[in-house]
Write a protein that binds this DNA or RNA. Structure first.
Ligand SMILES: O=c1ccn([C@H]2C[C@H](O)[C@@H](COP(=O)(O)OP(=O)(O)OP(=O)(O)O)O2)c(=O)[nH]1
Ligand SMILES: [Mg+2]
Length: 694
DNA sequence: TACCAGTTCAG
DNA sequence: CTGAAC
DNA sequence: GGTA
């Protein structure tokens, strides 16, 4: 029955002759101009291959208009299989036959044709958005097949309970290669620090929880591939070259930092701190698995490039795990024993060890455009899809983009300030920007409080942008936003400080909006800096601090922890009674448990925030802030005035260095009560001492 | 086979 | 809704 | 991709 009205499409003469049979036309298709026929020469086989359903019929007609031939029956001429969204690879195999599917066949979902038409170009077929997923219904053959690089969602992974935690002694040893003996460079203490406190310290809560978060964080961290140390904060001028090398454009996604100073984390053995992450191959240390790591890293990069998020994460995690190995991993068995490395990766590890190459990597098209892709993705507001599209359209340089590509207003700004936005901002400059904004806020409303967030708050010596949290006691979001949007921001523009607004919530009709992103420049400077303002109602201050202090890895970790406890954590607060149904859907929105107090949120999540050290000292670890968990709020241990919002100090004990990042939360506030920091924190019940800090 | 954070803003 | 960003 |  479909037959009747199925054929509509007339094939133009120029099309490959073979396939023509199928079409007779009934309601001929209006072909687009020749040069618009991006599908010319291609033969599409739809699945289901009929035009009964109106939407599909529409897609088929459209594809034909753009030059595609519709194969009404499976034939050797088919080049593309266009699969309905609700079908999976198993259905494809069933319908066509695994033996008929060849590697040359491109199997994509229904979004492919319309997208290509929209962009007037044949898009890369491997993009994740076009992939046909292996269905939930996978038969025994499941794995085997893999027509193209289909990678769908996939199964998942879990924590790495690896040996992230090593004792101080252990940590100390491998770590020696850290040259610069004298300078104890900063080293991020890491998550483990927290765990370390456990043993010899009195903690308020059970340690299981912390341990759990540690594990989660460790996992996520690995996952994001941080070279293991996120930022090395430190104010020290040490010999390192600091930021100078930092920009190689790219980033934004997970990327490697070039210098990985290793980690040595440290802890005072006497105190029983164990520390974690041993370092791994630092720049100089020759890791026995270097070759393997390199290859896997290329694979990771490849998957990253095609947008396969989870697979990329898994590769990075495996790489991180491998870096921690002190022995050469040459066999599958050996590799599979490492958390984060499963059967498939283990096989790859073995293949690399034996043959010194990886076939899968070679089959992977090493796109010559890769450097360009990275270049484009370095533009603010340009991600993988956009960069790929531009390359597909033939653009090869930033100049091409400037003159020929169609850019959104923000992309053009990003392009015009390519270097500005990619360069790191010295901490002192971040503070200078913050001071200007703070002053403007004060002029508008003396009660407004401004806290520097982001990497600056975590103590980094240089930052990617300026993150500012703006709130006011007892104020609502509306009140705060009004002051900023109506008064402060206009004034800052007038002062010549703000240069442009990039995301200002102007699109959402009325007055919603909780953030303001733009660019600013110091007086006399030509360099534009990205500046992000977060408007926070007083009741959400604590949650906002956690969120905006980050880092991102830490946030994902703690949020994951919350969800495991049937809670939900976001920038507004911690919610309970969350019910989740099938795949991500939240059945209950939950009820607010806490939003104002940062410490209360940690507490509710079961994370200890205070630790008593022998000798009466007290230390407060905001779990996990800072360099991902490494930030610490110090009580008595560190005397002296704590700078505005953050203070860093490095305490050296014996042969280990304990890098401490003090985040002054309450302290800032409690300017007065500062002397009793310890007791202050211990209360646990108090409100966060937010401070006027000014 | 499900999960791998949760949200805001532009278009 | 997608893309990009935080 | 790994994990459960
Ligand atoms: O995917 C993300 C990205 C960021 N954030 C939070 C944590 C982060 O610390 C804060 C500010 O974001 P930004 O992108 O500025 O990161 P940063 O930590 O400040 O680092 P950088 O020095 O690159 O600015 O927003 C998230 O929760 N998720
Ligand atoms: Mg930042």
């Amino acid at each position: 029955m479909p037959a009747q009205f199925s054929n509509r499409r007339k094939i133009s003469a120029k099309a490959p002759p073979k396939l023509s049979k199928k079409q007779s036309s009934k309601k001929s298709i209006q072909l687009q101009p020749e040069d618009a026929q991006i599908f010319r020469g291609l033969v599409f086989y739809f699945l289901p291959n009929n035009d009964i359903a109106a939407p599909r019929r529409k897609r088929i007609e459209k594809a034909q208009e753009y030059g595609a031939l519709w194969a009404r029956e499976w034939s050797a001429d088919v080049t593309h299989v266009i699969v309905d969204a609700n079908l999976r690879m198993s259905d494809v195999e069933k319908a066509i036959g695994s033996d008929q599917l060849k590697p040359r066949h491109v199997i994509v979902n229904e979004k492919y044709p319309p997208d290509c038409i929209e962009y007037q170009v044949l898009l890369p077929t491997h993009l994740l958005k076009f992939q046909v997923f292996p269905g939930p219904r996978r038969g025994p053959e499941a794995e085997g097949q893999q027509p193209r690089e289909k990678s769908p969602k996939a199964p998942s992974e879990h924590f790495n309970r690896s040996k992230i935690f090593a004792t101080a002694g252990a940590a100390a040893k491998p770590d020696n290669e850290q040259e610069e003996p004298a300078v104890v460079t900063h080293e991020p203490a890491s998550f483990a620090a927290v765990e370390g406190f456990g043993p010899s310290i009195t903690t308020k809560k059970g340690e299981n929880e912390d341990d759990e978060l540690d594990r989660i964080v460790a996992e996520v961290q690995a996952t994001a591939d941080l070279p293991l140390e996120l930022e090395d904060d430190s104010l020290e001028p040490s010999s390192s070259t600091t930021a100078s090398d930092s920009e190689d454009g790219q980033l934004t996604r997970m990327q490697e930092k070039k210098h990985k100073r290793s980690i040595s984390d440290v802890v005072d053995p006497q105190l029983g701190f164990s520390c974690m992450r041993k370092n791994e191959g630092t720049s100089k240390s020759k890791n026995p698995n270097l070759r393997t790591i390199e290859m896997l890293d290329k694979m990771a990069h490849y998957y990253d490039r095609i947008g396969d998020r989870w697979r990329t994460i898994s590769y990075r995690k495996a790489i991180t795990a491998l870096k921690r190995q002190t022995d050469y991993i040459a066999t599958r068995e050996q590799a599979i024993g490492i958390p984060g490395i499963g059967e498939r990766l283990a096989s790859k590890v073995e293949e690399i060890a034996c043959t010194n190459k990886l076939r899968r990597l070679e089959s992977t098209v090493t796109d010559p455009n890769d450097p360009i892709l990275l270049l484009f993705m370095g533009i603010y507001q340009v991600g993988l899809p956009t960069a790929s599209r531009w390359i597909a359209q033939g653009h090869q340089s930033l100049e091409d983009l400037k003159s020929k590509a169609d850019l959104t207003p923000n992309q053009r700004i990003g392009l015009d300030h390519y270097d500005d936005f990619l360069s790191r901002i010295p901490r002192s400059e971040v503070m200078a920007h913050a001071d200007i904004v703070r002053r403007a806020c004060s002029n508008a409303d003396a009660q407004i409080q401004l806290v520097v967030g982001g990497s600056c708050r975590r103590g980094s010596a240089d930052c990617g942008d300026i993150d500012l949290i703006i709130t006011k006691e007892s104020a609502s979001l509306e009140q705060i936003r009004t002051i900023l949007v109506d008064t402060v921001i206009p004034q800052l523009f007038q002062d010549g400080f703000l240069q442009v607004g990039l995301a200002t919530s102007r699109s959402r009709s009325t007055d919603r909006g909780s953030k303001w992103h733009g660019a600013s420049a110091l007086p006399g400077s030509q360099v534009w800096r990205r500046i992000d303002l977060l408007f926070v109602p007083w009741d959400e201050f604590g949650a906002a601090l956690i969120y905006f202090t980050g880092n991102d890895i830490f946030n994902r970790s703690i949020r994951l922890l919350a969800s495991r406890k049937k809670m939900r954590l976001n920038q507004h607060g911690l919610y309970g009674d969350i019910m989740r149904g099938e795949k991500r859907e939240r059945i209950t929105q939950g009820r607010l448990l806490e939003g104002r107090s940062e410490e209360r949120i940690f507490e509710i999540l079961g994370l200890q925030t205070q630790h008593h050290l022998p000798g009466g000292a007290s230390i407060r670890i905001m779990a996990y802030m800072g360099i991902s968990l490494e930030s610490v709020i110090l009580g008595k241990l560190v005397a002296g005035a704590i700078p505005r919002c953050i203070a860093l100090s490095t305490i050296q004990k014996r042969d280990v260095v304990f890098h401490i990042c003090e985040i002054d939360l309450a302290t800032e506030a409690a300017t007065a009560a500062k002397n009793q920091t310890t007791s202050k924190w211990s209360k646990g019940t108090d409100q966060p001492g937010l401070s006027p800090h000014n």
